[in-house]
Each structure stands twice: as structure tokens, then as C-alpha cells.
């Protein structure tokens, strides 16, 4: 498994505000990394650094390129969708295809036309005439037809209705992803991506507070539902979060012994959303 992104001591400040505080992380080929954090935590700054859209301090290597210096070469291997609906309103669908075909050596026009054939988008339409969902479909059709090795998605489904959101991730998995390609995705809608991810990174105030594979996460974090009587006993194992469900307590443990957990009550795999909330609160305390 090869490294495609290596960051060491990556920092970025805007005036006195530190958006990234000397973080280290890596992304390997074939991984789908979820970068999750509240607004202003540094997600977008990290993505911008990887894409060469911002200056930064520290070391960052993406496919052997320094994104600050060799951005346009890097973009042959990396593509990104930043938010939805950034295609300009005046652009015709046919022109969008012509443009990407003209500037991107890895673009497969037939593939893009095949995607578009499955939608109601007409070649003659302008982006301004399409619904937000259709613009996303068009953008996805363009990007998925480019044979890049890393796809970066920043809140790709923001503002879309549920049908398009589901379809978006479905297409992404079935048409783009394979063991040679990687995806980095940030989103607020954690539930939608948690089954896709192979790696999870939580970021808060410019620092990574969790950075591990999903396998490690499910080994390390356990949710146990216990009756009120054993709640006090469970608290001795230092749960990182607790909540009430139908008169019972649910505790989230970080690194509890499996046998101990089983003796306390029912074991569940915590959802990424619950884990996220717990970690964010924990980091605050």
C-alpha cells in the first residue's frame, strides 16, 4: 500500500488565528478518508493545502509534488469537488464536456456522456437552467470521467435533497472507487458516509483528535447499554460519553476490555455521529 499524501508539522495561520496547529497525517492509496469536524476546525484549510490552494508552513507531499509549487501538475492526478453548484451559470453542458476534454488528458468523454445519458440533463442546457441536483449530477459526471488517483470532496452534498445525496455516494462508490484510488471527504452529514469510510479523522481547533482506520475504531470504541442498577459500576471504567435511552443508560467507552463490557450489558458499535459528539465534548473538557 503506497502513501499518496504525507503531512508533517503542517501549520497554517490567518493572522493570530491558527487554523492548523502543526498536524501530521497520511493518506494511503485505496482509502476513503472521512475528515470530520465542526465549522472552523480546519477541515477546509487542510484540503486547500493538499490542493495547493493555500500557502502553509511545514512539510506536505502529495504524489511526490509540493502542492504550493506544482499545483497544475498535481491536478492531473487529483480532482476536487468543493461544495456543490460551483459550475458557472452561463456554461452549456456540451461546453463543459468540451472544456474538460480540452484541458484534462485523463478525461474520458464517452464515460461522461454515458453518465449524463442516465440523467434528464440535455446537452444544450445551460447550468443556470438546471436544478441544484442536476448541477451536482453534471459535476459528478465530469469528475468521475476523469481518471485521477485522488478525489477530494468538501461538503459535496450540502444543500441537496436526500434522493440526490444517496445517488451521489452510490455513483461515487460504483463508478469511481477502486483499490488504486483514494477519496478524502468532509461532510456534516456523517451518517451518510460512515458506511463508506475506511479511515476516520476528527479535527478540532486545528488539531487531529482522532486519526485511525474504521477497523481500529470499531475495536477501540464500544457502546454498552446498561440498566440503571449497574450504571454506577459502569462509570468506574471512565466512559467518554453517556446518554439515556428508554430509562436505560448508554455508555461509550474508549478501549474497554471486551469481556468487561459484555458483563455490563448489551454491546453496540457506536455510530460515527455519537463518537464525534463524544470526542468533541471530551476534547473540550
Amino acid at each position: 500500500m503506497s502513501r499518496i499524501v504525507t503531512a508533517k508539522g503542517l501549520s497554517k495561520s490567518y493572522g493570530s488565528f491558527d487554523a492548523l496547529k502543526s498536524v501530521d497525517f497520511t493518506v494511503d492509496r485505496g482509502r476513503i478518508v472521512g475528515l470530520i469536524g465542526p465549522n472552523g476546525a480546519g477541515k477546509t484549510t487542510a484540503l486547500k493545502a493538499i490542493l495547493g490552494l493555500t500557502t502553509f508552513q511545514g512539510h506536505l507531499d502529495v504524489f511526490g509534488f509540493d502542492p504550493r509549487k506544482e499545483r497544475h501538475k498535481l491536478m492531473q492526478k487529483v480532482c476536487f469537488i468543493a461544495d456543490v453548484a460551483v459550475l458557472p451559470r452561463w456554461l452549456k453542458v456540451s461546453q463543459a464536456l468540451d472544456f474538460v476534454e480540452g484541458v484534462h488528458p485523463m478525461f474520458d468523454r464517452h464515460k461522461a456522456e454515458r453518465f449524463l445519458g442516465k440523467t434528464k440533463i440535455s446537452m444544450r442546457s445551460r447550468v443556470g437552467q438546471l436544478s441544484k441536483g442536476m448541477v451536482t449530477q453534471l459535476h459528478l459526471a465530469l469528475v468521475l470521467a476523469i481518471d485521477v488517483e485522488l478525489l477530494v470532496l468538501d461538503e459535496p452534498t450540502l444543500g441537496l435533497d436526500i434522493l440526490y445525496r444517496k445517488e451521489f455516494y452510490h455513483e461515487l462508490l460504483s463508478e469511481f472507487y477502486d483499490e488504486n484510488r483514494s477519496i478524502i471527504v468532509t461532510t456534516h452529514q456523517v451518517e451518510e458516509v460512515e458506511n463508506l469510510l475506511t479511515d476516520l479523522m476528527f479535527i478540532k481547533d486545528g488539531e487531529f483528535i482522532l486519526n485511525s482506520t474504521m477497523d481500529e475504531v470499531s475495536e477501540r470504541f464500544v457502546e454498552v447499554m446498561v440498566s440503571q442498577e449497574v450504571a454506577e459500576q459502569a462509570k468506574q471504567y471512565n466512559p467518554i460519553a453517556e446518554r439515556d435511552v428508554f430509562g436505560r443508560k448508554v455508555f461509550l467507552f474508549d478501549g474497554i476490555d471486551a469481556e468487561v463490557a459484555q458483563n455490563l450489558g448489551e454491546i453496540h458499535r457506536p455510530s460515527v455521529a455519537d463518537l464525534f459528539v463524544a470526542k468533541m465534548k471530551g476534547a473540550q473538557a
Binding site: H72, L74, Q76, I81, V86, L87, F99, V103, H104, P105
Partner: peptide, 10 residues
């Protein structure tokens, strides 16, 4: 739309 133009190798 600069975000789209900048996502291309140009």
C-alpha cells in the same frame, strides 16, 4: 466557479 476552473490541471 473559480473552484471548478482551479480543479483542472491548468
Amino acid at each position: 466557479s473559480i473552484l471548478f476552473w482551479k480543479s483542472m490541471p491548468v
